[in-house]
Lab assay of single mutants.
Amino acid sequence: AEKTGIVNVSSSLNAREGASTSSKVIGSLSGNTKVTIVGEEGAFYKIEYKGSHGYVAKEYIKDIKDE
């Protein structure tokens, strides 16, 4: 099942092309942005936001229960 997560940073969080800190940054998400978690790979979540996919470090995403 898809989960919703909240970007848990004070400034912004980089979204990357792949599940690695050396992957190209494809965008950034500001704190408290809601994202859909579609998968996980190592220390990263694969997320969907406004129709695009990217990878973000798990430690900066807070899971919330689907309402």
Rank of each mutant, 00 (worst) to 15 (best):
G39W: 03
L29K: 02
A15C: 15
G27Q: 03
A15E: 03
S12H: 13
G18L: 10
I26W: 02
E59S: 07
S11G: 15
E67Y: 12
K34R: 11
S28G: 05
D63P: 10
V9G: 10
K24S: 09
G18H: 14
K46I: 13
N14G: 07
L13M: 06
S12V: 12
I64T: 07
E17R: 04
G51E: 07
G39N: 02
G27F: 15
K58R: 06
T36I: 13
Y49M: 06
I64H: 05
V56F: 01
S23H: 08
E2L: 15
K34C: 10
N32Q: 10
K50R: 10
G5D: 02
T21E: 14
E2P: 15
I6H: 06
G27M: 15
S28K: 12
G39H: 02
E48V: 14
T33E: 10
T36Y: 13
I6R: 07
K50A: 11
G27N: 03
D63S: 09
A1C: 15
G31R: 12
K3N: 05
K24C: 10
I61M: 03
S52N: 08
L29C: 05
T4V: 11
K24R: 11
V38D: 01
G42M: 03
H53G: 04
K3M: 10
S22M: 09
D66E: 13
I26V: 08
E41I: 08
S11M: 10
K62R: 12
A1S: 13
I37S: 01
G31F: 11
N32H: 11
A57P: 15
K46E: 05
G31P: 15
K62T: 14
T33F: 06
G18M: 10
I64W: 08
I6C: 13
S11W: 09
K24V: 07
T4C: 13
H53R: 04
V7Q: 02
E48A: 10
K3D: 02
V56E: 01
I37R: 00
A15I: 15
Y55M: 00
G31W: 10
G5F: 08
K50W: 07
R16S: 07
A15K: 01
D63K: 09
K34I: 13
F44W: 14
T21F: 15
F44R: 00
A15M: 15
G18K: 13
G18S: 15
I64P: 06
E40H: 04
I26H: 02
S22G: 10
V35W: 03
A1F: 14
Y60T: 04
S28C: 13
A19L: 06
S12R: 10
K3S: 06
G27W: 14
G39S: 06
G5N: 02
S23N: 04
S22V: 08
S22N: 12
I64L: 09
E2S: 15
A57N: 09
N14M: 13
E17A: 09
K62L: 12
D66W: 15
V56H: 01
E41M: 07
I37A: 01
A57L: 15
T33P: 01
L13C: 15
D66G: 10
S22Q: 11
G51R: 03
Y45T: 01
N14L: 15
T33W: 06
T36F: 11
E40L: 04
K46D: 03
R16K: 06
Y45P: 02
S20W: 06
G51I: 01
K65S: 13
S23R: 02
A19C: 08
K24F: 05
G51K: 04
A43Y: 07
R16I: 06
K3W: 15
I47H: 01
G18I: 06
S30D: 12
